[in-house]
Amino acid sequence: MPETAGQTFIHTPTPGLPEFDYIKPASLTAASQFLAEHAGEARPFMGGTDVFVRMRDGFWTEKYIVNVKGLDGMNDVTFDPTTGLTIGASVNMNRLIASLEVKEHYPLLAEAAHTVASYQLRTRATLVGNICNASPAGDTIGACMVLDGTLHIHGVDGMRKEPLSTFFVGPGQTVLKPGDIATAITFPIPPAGYAAKYIKLGRNAIGDLAIVGVTALGFPDRGAPSGYRVRLALASVAPIPLVPTQAEAILAEKPITEATINEAAQAAMDASTPIDDVRGSARYRKLMVKNLTRRAVTQVWEQIRE
């Protein structure tokens, strides 16, 4: 177990991975059953990029590591002009980024995925894994939320769907239950005339975790008083990926001007509840929510009003 000195945690991972048994079930049903039967001592993995790190750290001590990659069509990217996009849970981020359908219809997904770590890590990392990992800093979660993604879950009772809006419970915590395996995420056809942007502030120019991440997706909407709707999602500024609804409401209701954007940015800042950590202070994070929300919304607005 990780060592502590009094109340202070000391990060002392082991040189290698702890002992566990590697399990590769033949089907989703078998996988769900195994995971449910070994609740608390079995963990599914996709890319493993977070699982292995946490096991070395001693945070996760499962006896069984269950490879759920490549089961029953989880390795596909499919696009249907009427129903939208499906990304299988095993699809790695580099494949996602390279997908022509993603590039053409959902470039925001590729843009966000591209900011994750490094190319070689993205060979292993998956979009669905990034979501299920439920890090408040997850770079792709915001994109999935503003694109209205739905997770497809295989559990002991069969398939079900989970909207992302209610999926996250806390840092690393989701509504998934023992036996649940996310098999894919689907996205509807995006709104006509939309534009979107992910702005990430990290320590390095490329490749770092987000100190703050802002995702914005805007589109013309006659139903909105302003004529537009802008969906927003914020990373690293709350225990779960945060949707600043007040800011969205301001942009829907008031004619979009520089002042309105500023007001929305301020509302996003007010909605955020970041913490101080080694990557940045809460104060700075809040200020950056404001500045980067303004920047992201302005860029989106400049594109959609044309």
Binding site: H11, R203, N204, A205, I206, G207, D208, L209, R279
Partner: peptide
Amino acid sequence: PSFVDYRIATSSD
């Protein structure tokens, strides 16, 4: 005490 939070310059910097 790790590269996650002890950042050093990368090719991008």
